[in-house]
Design a binder for these strands. Structure first.
Lengths: 101, 101
DNA sequence: TGGTCAATTGGCATAATAACCAAACGACAG
DNA sequence: CTGTCGTTTGGTTATTATGCCAATTGACCA
Protein backbone atom coordinates (compact mmCIF):
# COMPACT_ATOMS: atom_id res chain seq x y z
CA UNK A 1 0.00 0.00 0.00
CA UNK A 2 1.74 3.16 -1.19
CA UNK A 3 1.19 6.74 -0.12
CA UNK A 4 -1.24 7.52 -2.89
CA UNK A 5 -3.48 4.60 -2.02
CA UNK A 6 -3.29 5.62 1.60
CA UNK A 7 -4.39 9.11 0.64
CA UNK A 8 -7.32 7.89 -1.44
CA UNK A 9 -8.49 5.66 1.37
CA UNK A 10 -8.28 8.51 3.83
CA UNK A 11 -10.29 10.90 1.68
CA UNK A 12 -12.93 8.31 0.89
CA UNK A 13 -13.25 7.49 4.55
CA UNK A 14 -13.76 11.18 5.27
CA UNK A 15 -16.73 11.40 2.94
CA UNK A 16 -18.26 8.29 4.47
CA UNK A 17 -17.64 9.61 7.97
CA UNK A 18 -19.40 12.83 7.11
CA UNK A 19 -22.48 10.84 6.09
CA UNK A 20 -22.28 8.44 9.01
CA UNK A 21 -24.61 10.26 11.38
CA UNK A 22 -28.39 10.01 11.56
CA UNK A 23 -28.95 13.75 11.67
CA UNK A 24 -26.65 14.41 8.74
CA UNK A 25 -28.18 11.57 6.78
CA UNK A 26 -31.58 13.08 7.34
CA UNK A 27 -30.41 16.50 6.23
CA UNK A 28 -28.94 15.08 3.03
CA UNK A 29 -32.25 13.35 2.40
CA UNK A 30 -34.04 16.67 2.77
CA UNK A 31 -31.61 18.47 0.52
CA UNK A 32 -32.17 15.86 -2.17
CA UNK A 33 -35.60 17.41 -2.57
CA UNK A 34 -34.20 20.91 -2.88
CA UNK A 35 -32.30 23.54 -0.99
CA UNK A 36 -33.19 24.31 2.60
CA UNK A 37 -32.26 27.08 4.98
CA UNK A 38 -30.73 26.12 8.30
CA UNK A 39 -33.85 27.05 10.21
CA UNK A 40 -35.94 24.57 8.20
CA UNK A 41 -33.52 21.82 9.07
CA UNK A 42 -33.53 22.78 12.73
CA UNK A 43 -37.30 22.48 12.74
CA UNK A 44 -37.22 18.95 11.38
CA UNK A 45 -34.56 17.68 13.74
CA UNK A 46 -35.10 18.29 17.39
CA UNK A 47 -31.66 19.55 18.23
CA UNK A 48 -29.99 22.85 18.92
CA UNK A 49 -29.45 25.43 16.19
CA UNK A 50 -25.74 25.42 16.82
CA UNK A 51 -25.58 21.65 16.56
CA UNK A 52 -27.31 21.69 13.19
CA UNK A 53 -24.94 24.38 12.03
CA UNK A 54 -21.98 22.24 13.00
CA UNK A 55 -23.38 19.18 11.25
CA UNK A 56 -23.77 21.25 8.12
CA UNK A 57 -20.18 22.36 8.41
CA UNK A 58 -19.09 18.73 8.50
CA UNK A 59 -21.04 18.03 5.31
CA UNK A 60 -19.63 21.14 3.68
CA UNK A 61 -16.05 20.27 4.55
CA UNK A 62 -16.58 16.85 3.05
CA UNK A 63 -17.70 18.47 -0.21
CA UNK A 64 -21.21 17.09 0.04
CA UNK A 65 -23.16 20.32 0.38
CA UNK A 66 -22.62 23.98 -0.37
CA UNK A 67 -24.07 27.07 1.23
CA UNK A 68 -25.47 30.24 -0.19
CA UNK A 69 -26.06 33.24 2.01
CA UNK A 70 -29.10 35.22 0.90
CA UNK A 71 -30.16 38.02 3.16
CA UNK A 72 -30.44 36.86 6.71
CA UNK A 73 -30.67 33.21 5.78
CA UNK A 74 -28.19 30.62 4.61
CA UNK A 75 -29.42 28.06 2.13
CA UNK A 76 -27.77 24.68 1.82
CA UNK A 77 -27.96 22.43 -1.20
CA UNK A 78 -26.41 19.16 -2.38
CA UNK A 79 -23.35 19.41 -4.55
CA UNK A 80 -23.66 15.79 -5.59
CA UNK A 81 -27.27 14.86 -6.31
CA UNK A 82 -26.35 11.18 -6.57
CA UNK A 83 -25.04 11.12 -3.05
CA UNK A 84 -27.89 9.09 -1.68
CA UNK A 85 -28.03 6.64 -4.58
CA UNK A 86 -25.89 4.13 -2.82
CA UNK A 87 -28.20 4.14 0.16
CA UNK A 88 -30.05 1.32 -1.58
CA UNK A 89 -26.87 -0.67 -1.38
CA UNK A 90 -26.56 0.19 2.28
CA UNK A 91 -30.09 -1.03 2.76
CA UNK A 92 -29.13 -4.21 0.96
CA UNK A 93 -26.47 -4.72 3.60
CA UNK A 94 -29.09 -4.32 6.27
CA UNK A 95 -31.55 -6.67 4.57
CA UNK A 96 -28.93 -9.33 4.23
CA UNK A 97 -27.79 -8.87 7.78
CA UNK A 98 -31.33 -9.45 9.00
CA UNK A 99 -31.85 -12.60 6.98
CA UNK A 100 -28.82 -14.49 8.16
CA UNK A 101 -28.87 -13.72 11.84
CA UNK B 1 -39.72 12.32 11.72
CA UNK B 2 -41.28 9.29 13.39
CA UNK B 3 -39.61 6.48 15.29
CA UNK B 4 -39.35 4.20 12.33
CA UNK B 5 -37.56 6.79 10.24
CA UNK B 6 -35.29 7.50 13.16
CA UNK B 7 -34.47 3.82 13.35
CA UNK B 8 -33.73 3.53 9.64
CA UNK B 9 -31.46 6.53 9.79
CA UNK B 10 -29.60 5.10 12.75
CA UNK B 11 -28.99 1.72 11.14
CA UNK B 12 -27.91 3.26 7.86
CA UNK B 13 -25.52 5.53 9.69
CA UNK B 14 -24.07 2.49 11.43
CA UNK B 15 -23.23 0.80 8.15
CA UNK B 16 -21.60 3.96 6.87
CA UNK B 17 -19.70 4.43 10.09
CA UNK B 18 -18.36 0.90 9.84
CA UNK B 19 -16.96 1.71 6.41
CA UNK B 20 -15.68 5.13 7.39
CA UNK B 21 -12.14 4.16 8.27
CA UNK B 22 -9.17 3.84 5.93
CA UNK B 23 -8.07 0.46 7.29
CA UNK B 24 -11.56 -1.00 7.08
CA UNK B 25 -12.07 0.41 3.62
CA UNK B 26 -8.87 -1.25 2.53
CA UNK B 27 -9.92 -4.57 4.04
CA UNK B 28 -13.24 -4.46 2.24
CA UNK B 29 -11.38 -3.76 -0.97
CA UNK B 30 -9.25 -6.83 -0.40
CA UNK B 31 -12.22 -9.00 0.44
CA UNK B 32 -13.88 -7.96 -2.81
CA UNK B 33 -11.26 -10.08 -4.50
CA UNK B 34 -11.95 -13.08 -2.31
CA UNK B 35 -11.81 -14.25 1.26
CA UNK B 36 -8.78 -13.52 3.37
CA UNK B 37 -7.57 -14.77 6.73
CA UNK B 38 -6.81 -12.25 9.42
CA UNK B 39 -3.07 -12.74 9.09
CA UNK B 40 -3.16 -11.77 5.42
CA UNK B 41 -4.91 -8.54 6.29
CA UNK B 42 -2.47 -7.80 9.08
CA UNK B 43 0.37 -8.15 6.63
CA UNK B 44 -1.12 -5.61 4.22
CA UNK B 45 -1.89 -3.03 6.85
CA UNK B 46 0.93 -2.09 9.15
CA UNK B 47 -0.98 -2.26 12.39
CA UNK B 48 -1.32 -4.58 15.33
CA UNK B 49 -3.01 -7.96 15.04
CA UNK B 50 -5.48 -7.05 17.75
CA UNK B 51 -6.36 -3.80 16.01
CA UNK B 52 -7.12 -5.60 12.77
CA UNK B 53 -9.23 -8.08 14.66
CA UNK B 54 -11.24 -5.28 16.19
CA UNK B 55 -11.74 -3.57 12.85
CA UNK B 56 -13.06 -6.83 11.48
CA UNK B 57 -15.45 -7.08 14.37
CA UNK B 58 -16.80 -3.66 13.51
CA UNK B 59 -17.42 -4.76 9.92
CA UNK B 60 -19.00 -7.96 11.10
CA UNK B 61 -21.33 -6.21 13.51
CA UNK B 62 -22.42 -3.93 10.71
CA UNK B 63 -23.33 -6.98 8.60
CA UNK B 64 -20.71 -6.23 5.98
CA UNK B 65 -18.48 -9.27 6.41
CA UNK B 66 -18.78 -12.74 7.85
CA UNK B 67 -16.18 -15.00 9.37
CA UNK B 68 -15.49 -18.68 8.96
CA UNK B 69 -13.17 -20.46 11.36
CA UNK B 70 -11.22 -23.23 9.62
CA UNK B 71 -8.58 -24.92 11.67
CA UNK B 72 -6.38 -22.38 13.33
CA UNK B 73 -7.31 -19.60 10.95
CA UNK B 74 -10.34 -17.37 10.57
CA UNK B 75 -11.35 -16.39 7.07
CA UNK B 76 -13.36 -13.27 6.40
CA UNK B 77 -15.46 -12.62 3.34
CA UNK B 78 -17.90 -10.00 2.07
CA UNK B 79 -21.56 -10.63 2.68
CA UNK B 80 -22.53 -7.94 0.22
CA UNK B 81 -20.38 -8.04 -2.89
CA UNK B 82 -21.82 -4.75 -4.11
CA UNK B 83 -20.65 -2.94 -1.02
CA UNK B 84 -17.93 -1.00 -2.79
CA UNK B 85 -20.04 -0.12 -5.82
CA UNK B 86 -20.97 3.23 -4.45
CA UNK B 87 -17.36 4.16 -3.94
CA UNK B 88 -17.50 5.60 -7.45
CA UNK B 89 -20.14 7.96 -6.19
CA UNK B 90 -17.96 8.83 -3.23
CA UNK B 91 -15.15 9.57 -5.64
CA UNK B 92 -17.54 11.78 -7.59
CA UNK B 93 -18.01 13.79 -4.43
CA UNK B 94 -14.27 14.16 -4.15
CA UNK B 95 -13.84 15.11 -7.81
CA UNK B 96 -16.48 17.74 -7.54
CA UNK B 97 -15.05 19.06 -4.31
CA UNK B 98 -11.68 19.53 -5.98
CA UNK B 99 -13.08 21.37 -8.99
CA UNK B 100 -14.95 24.03 -7.13
CA UNK B 101 -12.49 24.95 -4.43
C1' DT C 1 -28.28 54.05 15.85
C1' DG C 2 -30.69 50.17 18.05
C1' DG C 3 -33.02 46.10 17.81
C1' DT C 4 -33.97 41.71 16.02
C1' DC C 5 -33.58 37.57 13.38
C1' DA C 6 -30.63 33.81 11.26
C1' DA C 7 -26.60 31.64 11.70
C1' DT C 8 -21.85 30.66 13.29
C1' DT C 9 -18.24 30.27 16.80
C1' DG C 10 -16.10 29.19 21.24
C1' DG C 11 -16.11 26.65 25.31
C1' DC C 12 -17.03 22.86 27.97
C1' DA C 13 -18.63 18.13 29.52
C1' DT C 14 -19.40 13.61 28.07
C1' DA C 15 -19.16 9.73 25.09
C1' DA C 16 -17.25 7.08 21.47
C1' DT C 17 -12.99 5.53 18.67
C1' DA C 18 -8.51 3.85 17.85
C1' DA C 19 -4.24 1.99 18.94
C1' DC C 20 -1.11 -0.58 21.64
C1' DC C 21 0.32 -4.22 24.96
C1' DA C 22 -0.61 -8.17 27.65
C1' DA C 23 -3.34 -12.02 28.62
C1' DA C 24 -6.56 -15.67 27.29
C1' DC C 25 -8.49 -19.00 24.09
C1' DG C 26 -9.15 -22.83 20.69
C1' DA C 27 -7.16 -25.92 17.35
C1' DC C 28 -3.69 -28.69 16.14
C1' DA C 29 1.20 -31.11 16.38
C1' DG C 30 4.34 -33.64 18.91
C1' DC D 1 -0.62 -33.26 28.20
C1' DT D 2 2.27 -29.38 26.61
C1' DG D 3 3.64 -26.08 23.37
C1' DT D 4 2.71 -23.26 19.55
C1' DC D 5 0.16 -20.71 16.14
C1' DG D 6 -3.61 -17.67 14.80
C1' DT D 7 -6.93 -15.02 16.75
C1' DT D 8 -9.76 -12.56 20.14
C1' DT D 9 -10.44 -10.02 24.56
C1' DG D 10 -9.36 -6.85 28.28
C1' DG D 11 -7.30 -2.82 29.84
C1' DT D 12 -5.29 1.74 29.24
C1' DT D 13 -4.49 6.02 27.07
C1' DA D 14 -4.86 9.56 23.51
C1' DT D 15 -7.75 11.55 20.22
C1' DT D 16 -12.00 12.81 18.14
C1' DA D 17 -17.04 13.51 17.99
C1' DT D 18 -21.35 15.18 19.88
C1' DG D 19 -24.44 18.38 21.93
C1' DC D 20 -25.65 22.07 24.81
C1' DC D 21 -25.15 26.97 26.29
C1' DA D 22 -23.48 31.54 25.83
C1' DA D 23 -21.45 34.99 23.09
C1' DT D 24 -20.64 36.92 18.44
C1' DT D 25 -21.38 38.22 13.68
C1' DG D 26 -24.08 40.00 9.69
C1' DA D 27 -28.08 41.54 7.43
C1' DC D 28 -32.05 43.96 7.62
C1' DC D 29 -35.81 47.08 9.66
C1' DA D 30 -37.57 50.89 12.36
Amino acid sequence: MDNQERHILRTRANVLKALAHPARLWMVGQLERGERCVCELVEGLDIDFSTVSKHLLVLKNAGIVEDDKRGKQVFYSLRIPCVMNFMHCVDAVLENAKLET
